[in-house]
């Protein structure tokens, strides 16, 4: 392919990918209610969102779930990545294949399997079930992010530390964690955005008393036009974009 065609094609597809996002963002500042014509610049949809108690509660609930889920997933996932990288143990192949399977399982299958297991274990649907569900789909992402960082390490350093009498936990705290910290932080940020944006798993495992933002948005866009949705959507998009850019900068190889 000639360079001009190459760049043209890449540019065209990327433009098509970003146009809908741009339209949504622009319209969130459009004073005209149905977004058919440009009615002037306004913040009123953001104000409407801010003053809507139901939506604000849902937003706070979403934040709570995402922070808790991302944090727990990061702790468990980081430890698992260290274990998979450093230790030989029985069931290692099983553990890594479970990580693999949980990444590839279609979300809808994960959603109903979690719903069934919550019923079987008698876990009430609501905050707890949401957090467990979100941790489960975030976990493999953290494991993969931290594991690929650990793979680039010089293992001799760890052996030297052990020969000098350092305990496993102090090797973890003093050497592995500081070195892997960018990947751990990136894992947290990615988990947070995945959790904040999830619809499919949440739709199945939430309870009637606990509303979260994406599901609120879902029910709003199903009934019809409500311009606050543009404002909420823009906020969600911007939050995710900023966090992902930060996480990718952290994951960059050099320093």
């Amino acid at each position: 392919m000639a360079p001009i065609f190459r760049w043209g094609f890449l540019g065209l597809i990327l433009t098509l990918i970003y146009i809908p996002i741009l339209v949504l963002v622009v319209n969130s500042f459009n004073a005209s209610k149905y977004g058919i014509k440009w009615g002037g610049f306004t913040f009123k949809w953001y104000e409407k969102f801010w003053n809507n108690d139901g939506l604000m509660t849902a937003a706070l609930n979403s934040l709570t779930v995402s922070i808790v889920a991302a944090s727990v997933a990061t702790v468990i996932g980081t430890l698992a990545a260290v274990a998979l990288h450093r230790y030989q143990f029985k069931g290692k192949a099983l553990l890594s294949s479970m990580v693999f399977v949980s990444m590839l399982t279609p979300e809808i299958v994960m959603a109903i399997s979690l719903l069934i297991v919550f019923m079987a274990l008698g876990i009430k649907l609501g905050f707890i079930s949401l957090v467990i569900g979100h941790i489960t789909f975030c976990l493999p992402f953290v494991i993969v992010a931290v594991y690929s960082r650990l793979k680039g390490f010089d293992m001799k350093m760890l052996e030297a530390a052990r020969d000098l009498g350092a305990s496993e936990s102090s090797i973890f705290w003093k050497i592995i964690l500081p070195l892997a910290l960018p990947a751990v932080a990136a894992g947290w940020l990615l988990s947070f955005t995945l959790s904040l944006d999830d619809v499919i798993v949440s739709a199945f495992v939430t309870g009637p008393g606990y509303e979260i933002l994406p599901l609120k948005v879902y029910s709003m866009v199903r009934v019809g036009v409500s311009p606050e949705v543009n404002a909420i959507s823009t906020i969600l998009l911007v939050v995710s974009l900023v966090l992902v850019v930060i996480s990718q900068l952290l994951l960059r190889e050099d320093k």
Binding site: I76, Y87, L95
Partner: peptide, 29 residues
């Protein structure tokens, strides 16, 4: 014992979690 303990948690937490919320649920489906 500290070697054993750290290893135990590092391997155990994720194994239990994935068994309980990935492996077991899929069988239940």
């Amino acid at each position: 014992s500290s070697v054993g303990q750290f290893r135990f948690w590092a391997i155990g937490l994720a194994s239990v979690w994935l068994t309980l919320f990935v492996f077991f649920p899929n069988l239940l489906v």
